[in-house]
């Protein structure tokens, strides 16, 4: 474990909690893409299938449990508990265009052609594009609530920090996972536009509004 990975995990965890609290407290999922949250639930499910077979550490196992549980809770709140506030008309990204290519790619490019490894690879590829429905929805509605932009910032920063974690691990642990690194780069690049808006607008107290 290194400081970058730890801060990355904390950032990821806080993003998940910010979203959970935003929906639960405001009893509304307005402006939130249910499709992205569905994709995140798939990402965690396919990535953590080794939850019971491969014990790394208490930290690792407990974080996995929290991620999986909170992603399902978020999907449940959006599609069930507060579905009356779900803005389906603006959450129209075609997720099949994300799931199919990443599934095919995980069969073609992976570290090991075994079910668990292919599912892990699919999860890595899918995570890199899972935020697209949410970013698409923000661009369609032209704006995002400030709390939603904090959620997106924390979520984007987590994988950016992981990039530094991989530099660190390459330097000091001879660890190198090209699949995770390339997908992490793609994921971070997708946030660049949002990072620019967040830093130039939200941090100055303005509302996040995209040029419609």
């Amino acid at each position: 474990m290194n400081i970058f990975r730890f801060l990355g995990d904390i950032s990821h965890l806080s993003a998940i909690i910010i979203l959970l609290l935003k929906i639960w407290k405001s009893r509304s999922c307005a402006g939130i893409s249910g499709k992205s949250q569905l994709l995140f639930a798939i990402v965690f499910t396919t990535r953590y299938l080794d939850l019971f077979t491969n014990f790394i550490s208490f930290y690792n196992t407990s974080m996995k449990v929290v991620y999986v549980a909170s992603s399902y809770a978020t999907v449940w709140m959006i599609y069930s508990k507060f579905k009356a506030t779900y803005d389906g008309n603006h959450d129209t990204f075609r997720v099949e265009f994300l799931i199919v290519p990443t599934a095919i790619l995980s069969f073609l490019v992976n570290h090991d052609f075994t079910p668990l490894e292919i599912l892990w690879t699919f999860s890595i590829y899918l995570e890199s594009v899972a935020i697209l429905p949410q970013l698409f929805m923000v661009s369609k509605t032209g704006e995002a609530e400030t709390i939603t932009s904090h959620y997106l910032f924390a979520l984007g920063i987590y994988r950016t920090l992981y990039l530094f974690n991989w530099i660190w691990r390459y330097q000091f642990e001879e660890f190198f996972d090209l699949i995770a690194i390339v997908a992490g780069l793609v994921q971070t690049v997708l946030y660049c536009d949002f990072f620019y808006l967040y830093i130039t607008k939200v941090l100055k107290g303005k509302k996040l509004s995209l040029p419609a």
């Binding site: 990821h12 080794d50 491969n54 570290h111 075994t114 668990l116 490894e117 190198f176 996972d177």
Partner: peptide, 10 residues
Amino acid sequence: PPGVGKHDEL
């Protein structure tokens, strides 16, 4: 490749 089936990152 990294510990195949032994991914230690979240």
